[in-house]
Amino acid sequence: MHSAFAKLNPRVRLCYFLPLLLLLAILRNPLFLITAFLFSVLLHVYYDKAQKLRKNMVFFLLLCLFFIICNPLFSHRGQTILFYLGGNPITLESFLYGLVSALSLLCVCSYGILYQVFFQSAGLFYCLGPYFPRTTVSLLLSLRFLPVLQRRFSEIRLLEQNRRLPEKSLLQKGGAFLLSLQILLSSSLEETICKAQSMRARGYGTDKKRSFYHDFSMHKQDWFCLFGILLGVFFLFYGFYCGWGNWQIYLNLQSFPHQAVDWLYYVLFCCYLLWPFVLEGWEEIKWLSCR
């Protein structure tokens, strides 16, 4: 991926994403969450034409709907009763809390996918490689094996259409499915032996130490960004700790926070979200000025 943000050291990117995911999981302010979601969509569009987001969006929306419906059904906290359902009160607070929680979930999922867009497997190397070299390689190999298993399983299911199997009743169908799993496991184990041989043939396990064909060093721009990110993270969590921008829903619904400090916190939050765009903009200016 050719972008200024993607070129940053993966550890710096991790420092940006992890606190953000944590904050989005605990923030309960719809304005903040909607803003965060909109920014995440913009980032998706900018970096991968929202391909990954579009693939998963339906699932996320269903999950959110599930939250919005289930929270008022199972939680009856709150003082503003809207109506009764089967003798249980449905409160405005629990409905709003469900809505805000769904928004929070949507944001976490959206930024989670964005994290995948940037990191893929190489990110694991950077973050774990220097400390746990062999575990990292094993983890990487296992991760790569998952889609291979998926492909092979569909191939095996396909071949079973070419063979008479007892699959009239549900039990027999279950048996046929287990048979496919059995073929998958045994043929995969067979191939794993080939993979293990390939690893041993190239010296895996002959030495406890391993080196990595990756540049782990931090450059000037990485340090500069890391400083900015850590500063932002500090203020964001300090603000959260002080209760800035916090909208109390339970037990009784409070008015929406609108003090100057809340708006200032909102601006700071937006600046943090905007950080990748600032970097891309700066890169664009540098490109144009050198031309």
Binding site: M199, G203, Y204, T206, R210, S211, F212, Y213, D215
Partner: peptide, 12 residues
């Protein structure tokens, strides 16, 4: 490509 070299602990 780098897998074998990494196992042999070659410098970057």
């Amino acid at each position: 490509l780098a897998f074998g070299l990494e196992n042999a602990c070659q410098p970057l």
